[in-house]
Design a binder for these strands. Structure first.
Length: 623
RNA sequence: GGGGCGGUAGCUCAAUUGGUUAGAGUACCGGACUGUCGAUCCGGUGGUUGCGGGUUCGAGUCCCGUCCGCCUCGCCA
């Protein structure tokens, strides 16, 4: 076999005169009859090969070369020379070419369904996923795989050099059916029982703290059987970690150091001190718990002002009940957003579309007005709901800091609905106004990079359907240290008191995307009991579900805290893509299928019998 | 579970109001060509219009169902 001495991205002018061997795929061929050019590709680049009869090439090799087609796999030996036809500045190796003297065809390809080419339009994703091995040959995909590999390396380096112990935890795990739906694995040895695949190694990493691991990290696979999205897969990767003898500040400090070292190493960017925002500020000002702070659009609660208008939509919304008593003790809300310069850019057609847009989040619509000069040349409110607001113009201008040419958008509803709707609307407006920087604009990769800590989350929120309290993060999240006594002593029926308790949780948000989330954990039995009580778990139920953790906590648990990063999302940001499938070598579709291997597939009766299970599924009757 | 978009040659797309033999580029096959570099030029093969029904003299086009892919709401402690 002609084994390579160099890669296809390697040859330069100083190799001229050397005899070298290359291996790779035929990326393109240009056949001039008695002169054939081949661009040979591997992961490292492209090199031009020449089959040139003037250089003593044998006729039968010329005939073989004549048949070479895209994606054939070959080995060639030859002499490096300066290109006779002049440099190709598009290629790293563009100053030289390889005059082939030996050719070995390792594998002729069937005509491929598509070519791994970044220049032409990509075929549809279904085809790319079915023939993933071809799609992955594309230079862009190779680059992503490389970035991902480097990121794994730099992550491990950081944590290993900071005293973290890398420990693997089980994939076959105990089912704890709170939170996300789990994948179940039937157990052959104990009929009728099942393992679950972990949503995260949460409980194991806490146990590891009790075990004296002191600092743990793992780059681990997590599984959640929920419908995927552009940035979600049923199977995904986390950088998971936990630390002993720390409080919130220590974890945040360590993570800031990690993020700084990671971005420095990945794209040479110096992450500045990460600003902090409370959950409440995030919700009030941005309508979302992961604000994109790359642009300065803000939302404002104008309920008091709106109550003074005669606009029925506002009045009705305000009359709605309070669904978040901590934030609004009496009523629904009217939220407003000032859009600087919106009067010109946000056309009637666009703002009409906003009403449909917010309807998808349960809101009734968007009220619009503009602050512009009227016929008399005076600054006035114009169009939409102007007539209701005109009497309050001065107050509105003051409250929002309106400037001429601004548009104001209003969403009125119960707190949760209005907040969510205007938060989503804010992002849509940012897109329409062109406020979102293009990836790579600054700071390398997908920059600019706007990092943000979001802290002081509520411990609990009401489940919309059942009305029961649920843990906002998970049931092992501790209250913020200064809230511990207040929490333990709180009356479980005092809704306002319970919702006011703030947790010691923290998220890292990057450009409007949650890249990490964690918390200080409960290591104190009184606190843990109170949490279970609030969640409606009896001590018996709690014991049944989490006995191993509770037992562990009772045998000498250090104070501990941790966090987990969504690794795939980090890579998405670094690569400036908004599709998580692009940063996963073998991703799944929206129904969790792997189009290449055709998973999932049916099990045989014998397999099912072994596992003591029976499928209730039957093929639909034919009409 | 709901909403939206899409599925036509190997691939990317086109096809007027429902109307002749479903076209183009590219890939592939054959031919020409000694300096190209997304080579060029000439010729050719290639179609269950996702699948199943229905309406119609006639369906890629309209209707119903279904499958697949993408976006999204719900969901994602």
């Amino acid at each position: 076999m002609l084994r390579r001495t160099h890669t296809c991205g390697e040859l330069r002018e100083f190799h001229v005169g050397q005899t070298v061997t290359l291996n790779g795929w035929v990326n393109s061929y240009r056949d001039h009859g008695n002169l054939i050019f081949i661009d040979l590709r591997d992961r490292f680049g492209l090199t031009q090969l020449v089959f040139d009869p003037d250089n003593g090439i044998l006729a039968d090799m010329m005939a073989q070369a004549d048949k070479l087609r895209n994606e054939d796999v070959i080995g060639v030996e030859g002499r490096v020379r300066v290109r006779i036809g002049g440099e190709n500045p598009k290629l790293e190796t563009g100053k030289v070419e390889l005059v082939v003297t030996k050719l070995e065809i390792f594998n002729k390809t069937d005509n491929p369904p598509f070519l791994p080419d970044d220049l032409t339009k990509l075929p549809n994703e279904e085809l790319r996923l079915t023939h993933r091995y071809i799609d992955l040959r594309r230079p862009k995909m190779q680059q992503i795989l490389q970035t991902r590999s480097r990121a794994l390396m730099t992550t491990r380096e950081f944590f290993h050099s900071n005293g973290f112990l890398e420990v693997e935890t089980p994939v076959l795990y105990k089912s704890t059916p709170e939170g996300a739906r789990e994948f179940l694995v039937p157990c052959r040895n104990v009929p009728g029982t099942f393992y679950a695949l972990p949503q995260s190694p949460q409980l194991f990493k806490q146990i590891l703290m009790v075990s004296g691991a002191d600092r743990y990290m793992q780059i681990c696979r997590c599984f959640r059987d929920e419908d995927p999205r552009a940035d979600r897969q049923p199977e995904f990767t986390q950088i998971d970690l936990e630390m002993s003898f720390v409080r919130r500040e220590h974890v945040m400090e360590m993570m800031e150091s990690f993020v700084r070292s990671f971005w420095k190493s990945m794209c040479g960017y110096d992450v500045p001190t990460i600003q902090r925002m409370t959950y409440r500020d995030a919700m009030e000002t941005y309508g979302i718990d992961r604000p994109d702070t790359r642009y300065d659009l803000r939302t404002t609660d104008l309920s008091d002002l709106a109550a003074r208008t005669d606009f029925k939509v506002f009045k009705d919304a305000l009359a709605k009940g309070a669904d978040r008593p901590r934030f609004n003790s009496k009523r629904g809300v009217v939220k407003a957003m000032r859009v600087p310069g919106g009067a010109d850019k946000l056309t009637r057609k666009i703002t009409d579309g906003y009403s449909d847009f917010v309807k998808t989040f349960g809101a009734g619509g968007v009220a619009v007005t503009k602050y512009i000069k009227n016929d008399k040349g005076e600054l006035a409110l114009d169009t939409g709901v102007a007539k209701f607001l005109e009497p309050l113009k001065a107050d509105l201008v003051a409250a929002l800091g309106l400037e001429p040419g601004d548009t104001v958008l209003f969403v009125a509803d119960a707190y949760s609905v209005a907040t969510k709707a205007i938060g989503e609307l804010r992002q849509q407006v940012a897109r329409d106004m062109g406020l979102i920087p293009k990836p790579g604009a600054e700071g390398g990769g997908g920059g600019p990079w706007n990092f943000l800590w979001v802290i002081d989350f509520p411990m609990f929120e009401r489940n919309k359907d059942t009305g029961k309290w649920v843990a906002m993060h998970h049931p092992f999240t501790a209250p913020r240290d200064d809230q511990r006594d207040q929490f333990v002593n709180a009356d479980v029926d005092d809704e306002v008191a319970i919702e006011s308790i703030v947790s010691a949780g923290y998220d890292i948000v990057l450009n409007g995307s949650e890249i990490a989330g964690g918390s200080v954990r409960i290591h104190d039995k009184a606190v843990q009991s109170k949490v279970f009580q609030l969640l409606g778990l009896t001590p018996e139920q709690a014991k049944e579900k989490f006995s191993f953790l509770l037992e562990a906590l009772s045998f000498g648990a250090p104070p501990h805290a941790g966090i987990a990063f969504g690794f795939d999302r980090l890579i998405m940001h670094l690569c400036g893509t908004d599709n998580i499938r692009d940063v996963i070598a073998f991703p799944k579709t929206q129904i969790g299928a792997d189009l290449m291997t055709k998973a999932p597939s049916q099990a045989t009766d014998a397999q099912l019998k072994d596992l003591h299970i029976k499928s209730t599924w039957e093929p639909p009757a034919k009409a």
